[in-house]
């Protein structure tokens, strides 16, 4: 680089590097559009966005390998164990604090599967298609409270 570069030249180089070396991940726009396409969320529902725990031993799941992942928001923690069953998968979950909360698993281009956790907070969904996946938890005691996750590729 020449030090006589004008600010505009240097800025243009920075712009090029930012765009070339740190681009928006492919498909992120589409995954985000899927994540926000929540049909039955009206404005009276208090939507809380959960955070995926990014523990190193679990990181492989983010790359598409089965395993256990956890998400949490406020006092709610949900552990999700994913097991491959042929082309599909089985999802075992455990909610804390326990309660008969509604659980929905949305998979892009595959609709969604719904179940209710038992009193111990456990739930099972079988034959879930693989793909870009989002989980929703509708809190039993507070009808207006719904927890939603960013998508994860399972």
């Amino acid at each position: 680089m020449r030090t006589n570069h004008t600010d505009d030249d240097l800025m243009a180089e920075v712009a090029r590097l930012v765009n070339e070396l740190d681009p928006l991940p492919p498909g992120l726009v589409e995954r985000t559009q899927f994540a926000v396409a929540l049909d039955d969320i009206d404005r009276h529902v208090e939507l809380e966005v959960a955070q995926w725990a990014d523990n190193r031993p679990l990181a492989g799941v983010r790359g598409g390998m089965p395993g256990t992942i956890t998400f949490f928001v406020g006092d709610l923690t949900v552990m999700v164990n994913v097991t491959r069953t042929g082309e599909r998968q089985r999802i075992d979950g455990w909610l804390v604090p326990a309660g008969a909360h509604g659980v929905e698993v949305r998979v892009a281009d595959h609709g969604s599967a719904v179940t209710t956790a038992d009193e111990g907070g456990r739930f099972v969904l079988t034959e879930v298609p693989r793909g870009t996946t989002q989980l929703l938890v509708r809190m039993n005691a507070e009808q207006s409270r719904t927890v939603v996750t960013p998508t994860v590729d399972l």
Binding site: P25, T32, V36, I41, V49, R62, P150
Partner: peptide
């Protein structure tokens, strides 16, 4: 990058809200 991806989606869900 992984965390940033989640944050991008979180922010748009927040906008929806």
């Amino acid at each position: 990058r992984t965390t940033a991806e989640d944050v991008v989606q979180t922010v748009w869900l927040a906008l929806l809200r």
